[in-house]
Design a protein around this nucleic acid. Structure first.
Lengths: 342, 342
DNA sequence: TTGTAGGCGTTATCAA
DNA sequence: TTGATAACGCCTACAA
């Protein structure tokens, strides 16, 4: 096998030095038209393609974005439509701008394991997928001048760069919708991971309470409950929960638990929305194709991915360096799973 | 901001040269225990982490695998559980072995765009996700000594490295199962992409026919039909198809069209399996959680991902270089969507 | 056991 | 307009 053809081979073949070849492939204006043609000819004939690694080393830039997914999440990925959807948004922008995505999974959650990754891989920036992170991470990365954007992490108080949806508003919308329909026995069920409720759900609960205040209806603690997040456990949780509680309206925090719930209700012969109104948080497209289709507080997950990537590339190129936040208002998409309480 | 700490900084801090530091971080045996300790101490204190790009350049290796997804596929990714599932298998192995995944999307389908990618990115190998590829690609990559594995591409004739399931056998299993249950009006519906039937479906059709031969039942061409693959089109296709045809058994080629079909049958009030028996090809886990749960010809998608990655890494490390093929027999998982024809 | 020196493939800064 | 030459950060003979 012929060894890889380098810039030097091209230089010799076209009777110039590497410098000139380098200028040619980088489209520098200060090179004679004639030699330029000669060099291109040699490039074509030899089948030369610049080596990215060498270029990265010289430039300190890669055109590669590290997409950080905690190991826990990467296991949850199956059947949870969040990941592929957000990835679609991310890759759309990345391809358009000539960047590639390096999948990085992290075992630890501390800032140190991130900064280690930062140094190990010469990536131009990090897109960090949600989940509970060290509070100082954003600050540390900023201090190290490492471009990053959090996706789906919503911590309005901190000076981080992130793209997220307004979860408080989402909780409000869901609660308000059911209350407006006349439901009084309504429940918000939020997932718990290892005993803790994730930040976005805490915000949703806050919004949920606001809906009650807003409607002058007293809120009671029993209106909120925690549940497991995987398909099987959530199914059995729902089963026993509905043995005790008899809500007329139910709000679920993600696609997986909503599917479980839908399955259970079908198995138990409880009809939606006749006997129970159902709302799910989740991607706008997902519950369009269930039976019944679900009224959804929409997350626009693909939009999240696109926007986060665009924000990140602006930081990478230096176009906009300052930390910035984009919080998108969710919308409630009315479909067939909610009706007036009679 | 302090500039990045390099091997030289460590060397100076510990009163040795870069060579020694290099030996220490690469765990070379020929270095004094005492200096080793001294160097490690400096590494810790300075927070040094080796730069991967530089290392790649020197070594010609990266510990990065390029995962090639055609642009068409990356758009199909949403809601199609194949991608996240296979990705889970891939990342599981990659993490275990210390490799990372670089997402590469390709616009072209010709060998040239691949070889270009091969040279551009210094990745150690390519995992190439299914779909219709240039027939010569495998040969060309082999010729260039570029490690690769096709995933889900099954071309038993060619001397390629690939991991796949035995689609012919899958078609056979599905057909045989329905015939054994006494069904005679059965249909195999395969997706068509831009007017062409993908290779794996052609094989399934062959197996489907074999099931008829095997049962001494004459096969008729009308038993096989092509259908669109996206959620909406396939729904409307099914609608008009079932207006004309009245099968008692139906086999669908993937998760998306099966969901459409399930939705349509529910909308039309056709009960499964009482009025129609249904079989889907797809991941073993997916249809466990539909109502009814579907009898599935299982693809073990996660296994595919794991196995392909393991095979690839063996080629990358040189442990096994020769092109090899792994074809897994599918199994039929009996669930609630098929019953005896009465 | 450690140091020296050259190379991996590019880019960038000077001179010429 | 082009050519030397020195980085970029690490690895590895070869020498000491």
């Amino acid at each position: 096998m012929p060894r890889k053809v380098t810039i030097l081979d091209v230089a010799q073949a076209s009777n110039v030095t590497k410098s000139t070849v380098s200028r040619v492939i980088n489209d520098s204006p200060l090179v004679n038209e004639k030699t330029k043609q000669r060099v291109w000819k040699a490039i074509k004939e030899l089948g030369y393609t610049p080596n990215r690694t060498a270029r990265s080393l010289a430039l300190g830039k890669n055109h590669v974005i590290g997409m950080v997914v905690s190991e826990q999440q990467i296991s949850d990925v199956v059947l949870n439509p969040f990941f592929p959807t957000v990835l679609k948004g991310i890759t759309t922008v990345a391809n358009r701008e000539g960047y590639n995505i390096l999948l990085l999974s992290l075992s630890g959650q501390d800032a140190r394991s991130y900064t280690e990754v930062v140094q190990r891989h010469t990536v131009d920036g990090f897109l960090i997928l949600g989940g509970p992170l060290d509070v100082n991470l954003g600050r540390d990365l900023d201090k190290m001048k490492v471009p990053y954007v959090f996706l789906g992490k919503h911590d309005p108080e901190a000076e981080h760069s992130f793209v997220s949806t307004d979860n408080e508003e989402g909780g409000y919308l869901a609660g308000k919708h059911l209350l407006d329909l006349g439901h009084r026995e309504i429940r918000l069920l939020v997932g718990e991971v290892k005993g803790t409720v994730l930040a976005h759900n805490i915000e949703r609960i806050a919004g949920f309470k606001r809906a009650f205040r807003d409607s002058d209806i007293p809120f009671e603690d029993r209106f909120v409950a925690k549940m497991p997040t995987d398909m099987d456990s959530s199914y059995y949780f729902m089963k026993s929960y509905l043995d005790k509680e008899k809500p007329s309206g139910l709000i679920l925090s993600n696609e997986v638990t909503s599917m479980s719930c839908l399955n259970l209700l079908m198995d138990e012969g409880i009809s939606v929305p006749e006997e129970l109104s159902l709302i799910s948080f989740g991607d706008s497209q997902f519950f369009r194709n269930t039976r019944p289709s679900l009224t959804t507080v929409s997350q626009s997950v693909e939009w999240l991915g696109r926007t986060a990537m665009e924000m990140l590339l602006k930081r990478v190129t230096g176009e906009v360096w300052l930390p910035s936040k984009i919080i998108r208002k969710p919308e409630i998409i009315l479909r067939g799973s909610t009706k007036k309480c009679d």
